[in-house]
Design a protein around this nucleic acid. Structure first.
Length: 469
RNA sequence: GGCCCCAUCGUCUAGUGGACUAGGACACCACCCUCUCAAGGUGGCGGCACGGGUUCGAAUCCCGUUGGGGCUGCCA
């Protein structure tokens, strides 16, 4: 008797894939995995002029990046809503035939005028009993019955709506096309959806849609409205104002695992005192009933912290592979033929603990692959300000010409110069670091210098000294 | 305005009437470690919106106030 639970994620392809959408998709996906159900991906591409196939492709790619795609047997789709237009219209006609819906010929302006005259907001049911048939410019409206509608919500409990506060809403536009409210329900019915898990902004739609389900002769699904994600102003995340594109975070070098983990800590938390946990634990622990009721701030700083944690936890080999797109693409700050994967592999462990985003990697190693380092002027000035700077660097250069070119030997040379001048290594290395790497901060110095080789190192020191004098 | 939802450190959360001196994480600060920067370690700062109930006992239950949010389209 227990039927397979069927969840769905139904984005409309009107822009970049939103992190809030990703979170909703994740919830549905996890629930489907957990209950051995099905995750239906439905692209709601009906008639909106904003739709574009490019966005659909983006959604598919972003979901796949998060591990949600047809390679898993729980996945079904994508189904395109536009392909089912005939079913939507048929359902509308059925509702009209039943008398549950009626046509109305009032224009938006007419309705506004009537509302203004009567002092009441919204549509007043003017055409309820006018017996109008279908016609050009006429919309089909749902006849909201008296009484009240109770929505049983898995995260909020039961929510009651007084039907008198719900106006007779539109089902079919004047041009005959179905609106979201209808198309969404008809698709859910025909696709056998049993659980609707979506963002809280849809809660006011739930009573209307529940009435459509019932009028069409079906048991409504189990509803769950999860809190929205907000920005620092506590407003719902918007594509216009906020940085919400999943694709963009991916481009910056956020790891899918970090994104998934972080998203799941918004409005919910895994059991125990640790929030960075394997996805398997999240899948095992997650419960709709324990989802928070209030909006959550999407904190990019914390996301990045999660990401840094995930980066550090990677085996080095995996880290090196993950960095590759940022090192070999045309955006890399060096000539392709100057890049040496072997050299990068050598210092990779040193950069791994120093980046939050994969896109931060190139600037940490560029001095190894560019002919000459990109000198940071401020850092240079500051490093060479002390009177001992040039003097000690000349002595270090002396040592470098003859010493063994290994990290330990190089360090010994610098330490010896330091002892002679009573300077700590921390201070003394500053001019050397800027001369060789162009910056005052970066990975430990002597390993990269050894990698760079004697000739290149001496040349950089000479150039810095010449510039100074 | 109307309808609906919500309210624990700055932020994300744990907490489901006694184990709460309210726990963890991010951020911030200090110290330790250290060739810079990180990482790591230790410690610190910081919260139950307010007012009434109920109860032997309330962050937890009820009511009110205040504050925030969502919706209010022939968008989805």
């Amino acid at each position: 008797m227990a039927q397979t639970p069927r969840y769905r994620f139904a984005p409309s392809p009107t822009g970049y894939f939103h992190v809030g959408g990703a979170r909703t998709a994740l919830y549905n996906w996890i629930l489907a995995l957990q209950n051995n159900g099905v995750f239906v991906l439905r692209i709601e591409d009906t008639d909106d002029s904003r739709n574009n196939p490019q966005w659909t492709k983006g959604i598919l790619e972003a979901l796949a990046w998060l591990g949600i795609d047809s390679s898993d047997s729980h996945f079904e789709g994508p189904i395109f809503q536009s392909a089912n237009a005939a079913l939507h219209v048929a359902a509308a006609e059925k509702l009209f035939a039943q008398g549950v819906a009626y046509y109305c010929d009032l224009s938006t302006e007419d309705i506004q005028k009537r509302a203004k005259d009567s002092g009441k907001q919204g549509y007043d049911g003017h055409s309820r009993d006018r017996g109008l048939g279908p016609g050009k410019g006429r919309v089909l409206r749902f006849r909201v019955p008296p009484g009240s509608t109770i929505v049983q919500d898995e995260v909020r409990g039961s929510v009651e709506f007084d039907n008198s506060t719900i106006e007779d809403f539109v089902l079919l536009r004047g041009n005959g096309s179905p609106v979201f409210l209808l198309a969404n329900v008809v698709d859910d019915i025909t696709q056998g959806i049993t659980h609707v898990v979506r963002a809280e902004e849809h809660l006011p739609n739930a009573p209307k849609q529940q009435m459509i389900w019932q009028a069409l002769g079906h048991q409504p699904p189990s509803w769950a409205h999860v809190p929205v994600l907000v920005n620092e102003q506590r407003k719902k995340l918007s594509k216009r104002r906020d940085k919400v594109a999943v694709e963009q975070y991916r481009e910056e070098g956020i790891l899918a695992a970090a994104m998934k983990n972080y998203l799941m800590t918004l409005g919910w938390a895994p059991t125990g005192d640790t929030e960075i946990v394997p996805f398997e634990k999240i899948t095992a622990d997650f419960k709709l009933g324990s989802v928070n009721h209030s909006p959550a701030f999407f904190d990019i700083v914390k996301l990045q912290s999660f990401n840094a944690d995930y980066i550090r936890a990677m085996p080095v080999g995996e880290f090196i592979r993950a960095c590759e797109p940022w090192l070999t693409r045309e955006k890399a700050p060096w000539q392709a033929h100057d890049y040496d994967a072997k050299v990068f592999a050598e210092i990779a462990p040193l950069v791994q603990t120093r980046v939050q985003l994969l896109q931060d990697v190139p600037s940490m190693v560029d001095f190894l692959f560019c002919d000459l380092p990109i000198i940071d002027a401020d850092a240079f000035t500051k490093a060479f300000a002390p009177e001992w700077a040039s003097l000690t660097l000349i002595e270090i250069r002396e040592g470098f010409t003859t010493c063994e070119f290994t990290p330990d030997a190089l360090k010994a040379v610098v330490e010896a110069v330091g002892e002679k001048h009573s300077l700590k290594l921390g201070k003394l290395q500053a001019p050397l670091r800027v001369a060789v790497t162009g910056r005052s901060v970066g990975p430990p110095l002597f390993e990269p210098i050894a990698l760079l080789g004697r000739d290149a190192t001496l040349r950089r020191i000479d150039i810095a000294l010449a510039k100074k004098v």
